[in-house]
Nucleic acid binder design. Structure first.
Lengths: 345, 345
DNA sequence: TTGAAAGCGGTACCAA
DNA sequence: TTGGTACCGCTTTCAA
C-alpha cells in the first residue's frame, strides 16, 4: 500500500541505495540524479518507514517523557516546551503520565524502554533512585527534570529550589509579614530545597519561628490541595497565628486559601499567602495567588536541548550536566498588604 | 547490546521460530519447551524489538492523538482516559498538541502518519474536513473527538452539544434569569450545537431575546478568556442588561466573570454565569463557576475503545460509529440566585 | 511439534 | 558517482 524506496528506484531506473543517499543528503550523488529522485519523492509523497530505519540504525528518534500528572498545568507546559524543540529536530515525543504513582511510573519506564526510545526524560515520583540505576545498567540515557535524587549523578534540568524558598520567604517579609509559616511538601528534592531556602532567609534575617510553623502534609496522594487545606487548619489553631504562609506548591496554596476563607479570615489582610509554580489559574482564584514562577516551558526547552545533545553525541557519554533555571516571584493579591506600621509600640 | 530472540534460541538449543511462537502464545508448542523459553525470557528480561515486529506485521501498536491544547485540562483529561484503556491493551499513545493552529495540526497529522500509527484520534481545529479526506485516501483510519464536521461520515466520540446548550440555558432559567445572553464560540460543531440548544430552549419556553444577546468572539486565537472578556463588555453596555449569561466554554466564562466584577457588578446577584467543560479550576475561581460537565475522561475511554475496535477488526472497515455522551450540570456559586420574586409588579 | 528459508524496508560497506 | 550485497530482528509460510 505505502510507497517504498524500491518503487522510487524502479520508476527512475536507479538503485535503492541512491534513493537512500538522496534522502539523507549524502554528498556523493550527482545533482541531477538528486533532483530526479527528490521530484519523484514529492510526487508520490514518499515517507521512509521509521521501523525499517530504526531496525538498521538502532535509533528510533523517539524520546520518552514521563510526568506525574498531565492535568497539572506545570507538566503540560513542560511537555509543550519539549515538543516545540523536538519538533524542529524531527524527533517524536512519547508522553506518559505516572499519575503520581511510583509503580505506574516504573511500568511506563519499562514500556518506553521496550519501545526503544533513544532517551528518557522523567519527572520522577520514585522514593528512591533505584529505578534509574536499573536504567543505567540497561544502557538507555535519561534526563531528570523537576525532581532529582541526592547522590545520583544524572543529567538534570530544573529550577533552583533553594532560591525558590528564599524568594518566597523574602517576598512575605517584604509584604510586612512577621510570623511566617511553611506548608512543606513530601521528602523529595523540590520540597527539601524550598524548605532549606525558607530557613536560610529567616536565619539570615535573624528571625526565629516556632518549629510548629513548618507543617508536613499528612499524605501525598493528592496534588496538594487536600493536604494544603488540612495543614492550614493546623496553622490556624496556633497562637500566635502566622500572618504569612509559604506553600510548597500552588495546589497546596489553593487548599490553604480555602481553609483561611472558611475560617472567616481575610487574605492578604489577616494572612498573606504565596505558592510555587505559578500555574495557569493562579490569577483566576477567589483571591489571585502570588506564586514563584518556575518557567515550566523553559524547563521543557532546556531538557529537550540537553537530551538532544546526549543522543546525538558521537563521543562517549557526556558528563552529567545540571541546568538550574532562576525562579521569579509573581506578586498578586494574596500578598498585597499595606506597609507594616512603622514603629508598632 | 540488547537481548534478541536469537540469543534465547541459541541458549536453549531451539530455533527462533519456536521462541517467536511462545512469545505470541501459539498453540503448537510443547508445554515444556514453552516453559523453558519463558523462563529464559524472564531471566534475560527480553523484550521483542517493536521496530522489527512492525516491519513485518505492518502494524506499530501506536495510536496517535492530536489535541488543540494539552494545557487545557479538558484535553489532558481526555488523554488520561485514553491512556488508561490503551495501556491495558498494550498500545502506546502518541500525544501531540496543535496549539489551536490548523497548520500545526496538519503538520502533526503528517508526522504521526509518517510514524505509521495504526489509527489517529483527533480533536480538530481545522476549518474544513479536507485534511481528513486526505487521511482517508491514504488509508489510515481515524476517530474524531469533541469536534466534528457536518457532512463527513467519520467515527466520532463527543458530547451531545445541543443538549449542553439546553441544559445550561434551562439552568439559568431555573435560577430565575429572564434575560439570557450567550457568548458563543467559533464556527465549529461544538459551538454551533450549544447555540442551537440555547435557542431551542428559549423558543420552547416562549422566551424571545434580542439578537444582540448572542455575541460572537472577535478572534479565536485565545482559549476563550480574552474573547469572553471582550464579549461580556459588549453585553454590559446593553439595555436592558442580561441577568444570565451562558458561555461557550469555561475560559470564556472566566473572562466574562472578570469583566463583570471589573464593572462593579456582582455574580450571581446581578448576573448569573454558566460555562461549559467543568474544567479542573471551576470550583476555585473568585466566584466558583457553574458549568456543564462533558465527562472528558469518558470521552477518552470511549474513543480508545472505538479506536481499538477499528484497529483490531479483521473484517472490512466498520461503518462510521458515533458515540454521544450525556452532559450534566454542575451548579456552583455563579448561578446560586435567590428565587425570583413571585409576582413582580 | 519444530524449524529452514524468505522476506518486511531500509542502511552500511565496499567494489565498480 | 553509483550500486550489489549483506544484514537489522522479527514473522510467515511451508516442509520435515
Amino acid at each position: 500500500m505505502a510507497v517504498r524506496m524500491k518503487d522510487i528506484a524502479r520508476d527512475l531506473g536507479v538503485s535503492v541505495v541512491t534513493v537512500s543517499k538522496v534522502l539523507r543528503n549524502h554528498s556523493d550523488i550527482g545533482p541531477e540524479t538528486r533532483e530526479r529522485v527528490l521530484k519523484r519523492i514529492k510526487e508520490l509523497n514518499y515517507r521512509p518507514n521509521p521501523a525499517a530505519r530504526a531496525l538498521v540504525t538502532g535509533r528510533t528518534r523517539m524520546i520518552g517523557l514521563i510526568v506525574p500528572d498531565l492535568v497539572h498545568p506545570f507538566f503540560a507546559e513542560v511537555a509543550k516546551g519539549l515538543s516545540r524543540v523536538l519538533r524542529k529536530r524531527d524527533y517524536t515525543l512519547m508522553i506518559s503520565s505516572s499519575e503520581e504513582d511510583p509503580a505506574l511510573e516504573q511500568y511506563e519506564i519499562d514500556q518506553l524502554l521496550a519501545r526503544r526510545v533513544d532517551i528518557l526524560i522523567v519527572a520522577s515520583t520514585q522514593p528512591t533512585d533505584e529505578a534509574f540505576r536499573r536504567i543505567e545498567e540497561q544502557g538507555t540515557p535519561y534526563v531528570l527534570i523537576d525532581r532529582r535524587f541526592a547522590g545520583l549523578a544524572a543529567h538534570f534540568v530544573g529550577v533552583d529550589d533553594e532560591r525558590v524558598g528564599e524568594l518566597a520567604t523574602q517576598h512575605l517579609i517584604d509584604a510586612g509579614c512577621r510570623r511566617i509559616a511553611h506548608i512543606r511538601g513530601p521528602e523529595v528534592s523540590t520540597a527539601l530545597g524550598r524548605l532549606a531556602g525558607y530557613r536560610r532567609v529567616l536565619s539570615r534575617r535573624g528571625l526565629t519561628m516556632p518549629p510548629v510553623y513548618v507543617v508536613s502534609p499528612r499524605s501525598s496522594d493528592d496534588a496538594g490541595d487536600v493536604s494544603g487545606h488540612a495543614a492550614m487548619k493546623v496553622l490556624l489553631e496556633l497562637s500566635p497565628r502566622p500572618d504569612g504562609v509559604f506553600c510548597y506548591n500552588d495546589p497546596a496554596a489553593v487548599g490553604a486559601l480555602t481553609a483561611i476563607l472558611e475560617a472567616g479570615l481575610r487574605v492578604p489582610e489577616d494572612i498573606a499567602l504565596i505558592g510555587c509554580g505559578n500555574v495557569h489559574y493562579s490569577g483566576l482564584l477567589r483571591v489571585p495567588l502570588s506564586s514563584v514562577d518556575q518557567d515550566s516551558a523553559g524547563i521543557g526547552e532546556r531538557a529537550a536541548k540537553l537530551a538532544l545533545s546526549v543522543v546525538e553525541a558521537k563521543s562517549p557519554p557526556v558528563r552529567s550536566k545540571t541546568v538550574l533555571l532562576a525562579p521569579t516571584v509573581v506578586a498578586r493579591e494574596s500578598t498585597r498588604r499595606p506597609p507594616p506600621p512603622k514603629t508598632s509600640r
